[in-house]
Write a protein that binds this DNA or RNA. Sequence first.
DNA 1: CTAGCCTGACAACGGTCGTAGTCAGTTTGC
DNA 2: GCAAACTGACTACGACCGTTGTCAGGCTAG
Lengths: 208, 208
Amino acid sequence: MPAAGRTWAGTTLTDRKAARRRQLLDAGLDLLGTGGSGAVSVRAVCRHARLTERYFYENFADRDELILAVYEGVVAEAHQALLDAVTAGTEGTAEPRVRAEAAVTAFVELIIDDPRKGNVLLLAPLTDPALSRRGVERVPMFAELVREQLSDSLDEGERAMTATALVGGLTNLFTAYLGGTLHVGRERLVAHCVRLVLSSAGYPAPHS
Amino acid sequence: MPAAGRTWAGTTLTDRKAARRRQLLDAGLDLLGTGGSGAVSVRAVCRHARLTERYFYENFADRDELILAVYEGVVAEAHQALLDAVTAGTEGTAEPRVRAEAAVTAFVELIIDDPRKGNVLLLAPLTDPALSRRGVERVPMFAELVREQLSDSLDEGERAMTATALVGGLTNLFTAYLGGTLHVGRERLVAHCVRLVLSSAGYPAPHS
DNA sequence: CTAGCCTGACAACGGTCGTAGTCAGTTTGC
DNA sequence: GCAAACTGACTACGACCGTTGTCAGGCTAG
C-alpha cells in the first residue's frame, strides 16, 4: 500500500506524481507542437521530460492517453482565453461583430504567443492518429461560436455545412499565418476572419 | 551495362522497371489513402506490391520520393477530371456558376469513386511529413479556380486570405463528407460548395 | 552450350520502438 | 538502526524499420 501522505524530499507521493504528470504533458506539448506527431513517442516524451519510462505508465496507459490529455489541456486553455476576451471586451453585450472580433483576436494572440498550442489545436486533430481516430473537432470554440449565431431558419444540414466550412476556412487561415505563408498583418487577418464568421452566420459583411 | 532492350519473360528491362514503378505507386496510394501516413513504410509498400526492397530503390531514392509521386499523380488526375468537366459541361462558356458547379461535381465524384484519392488530396499534404515539409498545396485546382475569378480590385493580401479560407472551407467539407460525419446528400453538398466558391469570388450567392 | 543478366528470397547491420522487470542506492517514519 | 517505500539507471524481449549485400536458380542472346 503506497503511502500517499509520506514525504520524500519534502513532497508527498501524490504531489510528485502530479508534478511528473505536468512534466510529461509539457514535454508532450513541446514535441507535438514543434516536431509534429512523429516526434512523439513514449521514449521521446520521457527523454524530453527527463523521466524514466516507468513514470510514464504511472500517469498514462499509453501514448494515446497522453496526446489526448495534451490536446484537451490546450483546448481548455484556448476556450478560457476566448471566454475571457468575449466577456471582457464586450461587457456583456451580445453584438455579434464585437464578440467575433474579441474571439478571433484572442485566438490569434494565443497562437502567436505560443505557436506550439496553435499547432496542437489546428493540426494535431488531423495529423495524429490518437486524435484523428477519435474524430476530435478542431477549434471547437469557434464551431460553437458560429453554431450559436446561426439563423434558426437553417436546417440541420445547412448548419452543419456552414459550420464545417467556417472551421475549415478559419483553421486554414490561422495555419497559414502561423506557418508564415500568409503575408498579411495581424489586424487584417483578424478583420478577414471576423468577416468570415459574420458572413457565415448570415450577417451582412461590412466592406473595408 | 544493363541491357535495356534485352527481353526477359517477353518484356524489356525498361518495361519491367516501369511496371514495377506502377506497382509501387499503386501500393503507395492504397496504403496512404486507407491507412494514412503511418501505414506507409518502404517495407510495407514493398510487401503490398509483392516486390523485394531492392526494387524500391530501383525507382525511388527514398520514401519521400514515392509519397510525392503518389500525390502528384493524384493531383494530375484530379486536375484533368476537373478540366474535362469544366470544358464539357460548359461548352466554353465563362459563366462562373456553371464552371464552379462542374468543378465541384467532378471533384465530389472523384473522391466518392475512389476515397483513397480523396484522402491523398485532402489529408496527406497535412499529415505526411514528406508533403507537409514541402508546404504542398491542398486541392491546388480549386485554389486556382478561385484565384482566376477574384476581383481585380482586391489586393494581394485579400486575395491570399480569400483563397486560403476557401480552400480550407472546401477541404473541410469534402473531408467531413468523405469521413461520413456530414450527413447531407451529394447534391446539397455540391450546391453549398458552389455557393461558397461564388461568394468567395464576390458573386452574389443565390438563396435556395 | 555458356556467360552474364535478372530475379526472388533471404541475411545482415544498426537503429528505434513499447512495455515491463531488476537492482543498487537513497530516503523516511517508526 | 531498520524495513519498506521510492528513485534512477539500466536490461530484456520482441517487433518494426531503412538500406544494402549475397546467393542460388532462371532466363536469354549469341
